[in-house]
Amino acid sequence: MLLASDVVVAQNVGFGIIAAVMVIFALRVVSSSNVVHAALSLVMVMAGAAALYVLLAAEFVAVTQVLVYIGAVMVLFLFGVMLTRAKLGKEGDLNNKNWGVGIPVAILLLGVMVYALGDGWGRTKIDATGGSVVSTTAISDLIFSPYILPFWGLSFVLLAAVIGAIVLARKD
């Protein structure tokens, strides 16, 4: 028999694994000295994020994440890497000279956020077992009635981006 407490334990374990994977690969993204390795690490982070979305009962977003990010965006990145003829092997100087500045800034930010989050949300629980999976129908209802205007705006942004990318990248 599957108890609610078992589900929660399973979810927590799953979360721990996914989170560990994401953080490790995210660190690799920003520390790897090989551009292609960095890109592949990013794929792992995205995949982890998609898994988290499933855990958060947002299936449609998870699927979109896989399709758009892992499918399209990553291919774009790899193309970018290739077209700019970055060396496919190891590269010594992917970091700029002031890279040291980034560490204190990031740690400072992290400290503030962790403190603020801990202070603000404390031990507030998500009801992991209750509630149903967010249905795609509900999302489409939302997008196409109250959020129709932002949706149109977004369509224009995408159109502009397509045109802009073509204009920028044309050779003549």
Partner: peptide, 16 residues
């Protein structure tokens, strides 16, 4: 938050 800060570090530190 952790991912965000790692991203910030990457934006600041990376040259490519």
């Amino acid at each position: 938050a952790v991912l965000f800060c790692i991203g910030v570090y990457g934006v600041l530190a990376r040259k490519n």
